[in-house]
Amino acid sequence: MSTRRLFAVALVVSLLVAGVASYYASSHPDGLEYVAEQTGFIDAAEDSATADSPLADYETSGVDDARISGGLAGVIGVVVMLVLSTGLFWVVRRRQPHDARAEHSQPEHSQPEHSQPEHVHQSEA
């Protein structure tokens, strides 16, 4: 499977999980909430400062249909995650991991892609 295809599959799966399957998730309290209820410290929980945000609790405010409200919040979340995390990792990544070693005598610091110098060559020839 090509890298591009695998990435596309991963994105579609994430969108389906967040946008569709999430409707069928268990609505029971999670492990920590449940233990807090059982042992008596659940009342210490305070509302988050973002509790009134338009996507709070994975529900889109103003959308009544629970399936669409939750699905939309999930899809928006997936898109925000994709942009933020891919952007972060793209900035953090090391540049030219292989060329830097192979072409030790000719360091090309300013070239972001190794395909670029080839392009220049072709246009020159």
Binding site: A10, V13, S14, S22, G74, G77, M81, L82, S85
Partner: peptide
């Protein structure tokens, strides 16, 4: 980036 997105979902 996709792994982070999948974990969120």
């Amino acid at each position: 980036g996709l792994v982070a997105t999948f974990v969120f979902a």
